[in-house]
Design a protein around this nucleic acid. Structure first.
Length: 432
RNA sequence: GUGCCUGUAGCUCAGUUGGUUAGAGCGUCAGUUUGUGGUACUGAAAGUCGAGGGUUCAAGUCCCUUCAGGCACCCCA
């Protein structure tokens, strides 16, 4: 039996082309995060199992977490998300860090489940978190960053929708206003979460069964359809969470975030969210699933035995982002990092080294074709690899110190000195 | 974890109601007199038909099991 060449289930190999694309994407993410003053951090891919048990539901820990016991008998988990790790790091230095604390990271994360469109077992996720700001300025800034990222990739505001809700409002509405039982709250929450995934008739049917009250049922439907805070019942319209949402929407509008809407269907699964929550959706109807999201989770740092810290953040996965960029044709054509392939003519391998080394010294990325195959084969190979230029080096060139630089895209060939070659290729680096 | 669909050359796929030695296009490699590519022509390599078992004189084709992939559910970090 021979070994499989496939990568492990639900994972991807990054061939140079894929890796280059990832580098491009991460580059944009880093640039935007840093433009808001965020600093990059990282943490180990392994964490003790208990930091996930402390904060999440049973199912996630039992079924969707990679866990094992190490040789010292410790229960270990491969991180499924970054939030507990960063909370741990902040808690560890709670007293000495300067707030507001703006941090981001690009961790690879693992979850054990059956892969499907846009969801794999390993993915990479931009995490952006703002610690120590209780006011709405934090929620506003985080959503601004999410918006700025999509804009930085060239997306238009109508390519995506940022749906915003408040956990406090959901609680208020279901418990205080509707006066539902715990069981009803749970069922209704799950149903609301599925609003965009199921047919209206199905939603209506389930809602009327759970609520068993015609007035409440119709009000809920109206609230979800309206996407307007003004449709909230007058009894709760002056509650703080509603004021917050109104103010947030106004802040976003005045800072040029055009894609944001209030949407009562946004819940998010994790229990640790305690304030504003948001999710970003592709406006293309064939990509119905949430792309990414986040919100406020003020209680998480406090789980590590220190005074809690107000926190707002979000996570954006590379798989869903890539799907979005592909669907909207927002991926640029990337040229190989290698600038030029040297094609040797005759027995000049050794003599050419001086020239090649000099070019590299002038910041040109040079690969030498060592195959000694016929010239046309070498040229074909260079074309296939996507490299823009090839440089011919033979006895004549070494004698005259002028070399033929061939532009493989245009088919033009020029005889140039090394300095001329280096400066014409340096232009490419500046442009890119 | 549950359900549906799919596995034939590196890739995309043909392959009749089971019937000789499993095909095509693209790609790869080589050549068309070795200092110049994308075209053309010639030739070559390349498949345990996902794997294992069964039915049959005979299985790529039918049955069972299993593995892998895709999609949906569950869940969503």
């Amino acid at each position: 039996m021979s070994l499989q060449t496939q990568p492990y289930k639900g994972t991807r190999d990054f061939y140079p082309q894929d890796k280059q694309l990832q580098k491009y994407m991460f580059g944009v993410l880093r640039k935007v995060a840093e433009s808001f003053g965020y600093l990059e951090y990282d943490a180990p891919i392994l964490e003790s199992l208990e930091i996930y048990q402390a904060k999440t539901g049973e199912e996630i820990v039992n079924q969707q977490l990679y866990t094992f016991q190490d040789k010292g008998g410790r229960q270990v988990a491969i991180r499924p998300e970054m939030t507990p790790s960063v909370s741990r790091m902040v808690a560890a230095k709670r007293q000495e860090l300067a707030y507001p604390l703006r941090w981001y990271s690009l961790p690879n994360l693992w979850r054990y489940e059956r892969p499907q469109a846009g969801r794999l077992r390993e993915h990479w996720q931009l995490n952006v978190d703002l610690f120590g700001v209780e006011s709405l300025a934090a929620d506003h800034e985080i959503i601004q960053i999410a918006d700025a990222i999509l804009q930085a990739f060239g997306a238009h505001s109508n390519n995506y929708v940022i749906r915003i809700n408040s956990r406090q409002l959901v609680d208020l509405y279901l418990k205080d206003y509707m006066k539902l039982s715990d069981q009803q709250v749970y069922q209704t929450t799950k149903l609301i979460d599925r609003w965009h995934k199921i047919e209206k008739a199905e939603f209506h049917q389930h809602a009327s069964e759970i609520l068993n009250d015609d007035k409440l049922y119709r009000e809920l439907i109206e609230l979800m359809e309206s996407k307007d805070l003004g449709t909230l019942p007058t009894e709760i319209r002056n509650h703080q969470s509603v004021k917050d949402l109104n103010e947030l929407m106004e802040l976003l509008a005045s800072s040029g975030v055009k894609s944001a809407v209030f949407d009562f269907s946004v819940i998010r699964g994790m229990d640790y969210y305690n304030g504003i929550v948001f999710e970003v959706f592709d406006s293309k109807p064939e990509n119905i699933r949430s792309m990414f999201g986040g919100g406020r989770y003020d209680g998480l740092v406090g789980l590590f035995g220190v005074e809690p810290i107000a926190t707002v953040g979000f996570g954006m996965g590379d798989v869903t982002l890539l799907r979005f960029l592909e669907a909207h044709k927002l991926l640029p054509k990337l040229e190989p990092e290698t600038d030029v392939v040297v094609i040797l003519i005759g027995e000049v391998y050794q003599k050419a080294q001086i020239v090649v080394k000099e070019l590299r010294g002038m910041a040109v990325n040079v690969a030498v074709d060592t195959s000694t195959r016929k010239l046309d084969s070498q040229i074909k190979n260079a074309v296939k690899s996507g490299i823009r230029y090839c440089l011919f080096i033979g006895d004549e060139e070494l004698e005259s110190q002028t070399f033929k630089l061939r532009d493989l895209q245009k088919g033009e060939e020029k005889s140039l000195s090394l300095e001329q070659i280096a400066s014409s290729l340096a232009v490419r680096h500046i442009q890119s």
